[in-house]
Amino acid sequence: MAENCCGAGGVKLLYPCSGAADVGELADRAVRKLWKQGFAQKTCLAGVGGDVPGFVQSAKGAELNITVDGCPIACARKSLERIGVKPISIMLADLGFKKGESPVTEENIARIAGAVEEACSISPKAEAGASLSGGGCCS
């Protein structure tokens, strides 16, 4: 659903690459886990890639955009950069996950979700975003 505009803090949007390989599925599953936990709002990378104005403008208006890529090709990060948005980028390869050798297990999903939360908590951008108004109609 659309981000609850009356929530506390800025709006964070999550974009998994959701690629075909195991690492793409891990990225997707970890993001869905974070979404269900209320950490951030998952949105549609395809909408950004397809230049759908609603998704593009939502990315530009969000306090934080977080991409989770399975492999170094970095489709999610590059999709955001193409529209002039610099996301916080999490790369599963940097966490030791290799394409074709990374089983989609609850343990791996939880590890990736934790890494995303940690990356956002230490990002200067995240810290700045927490104190700014902007995304969200009541903030």
Partner: peptide, 27 residues
């Protein structure tokens, strides 16, 4: 809700002019 998300809007408020989303997430 559906009227908002059907346009790909993930954050509000948003301004749409003649079907084109001009801005989202800020005033």
């Amino acid at each position: 809700y559906n009227g908002i998300t059907n346009r790909g809007i993930m954050i509000t408020p948003a301004l749409v002019v003649d079907g084109v989303v001009k801005v989202a997430g800020k005033v």
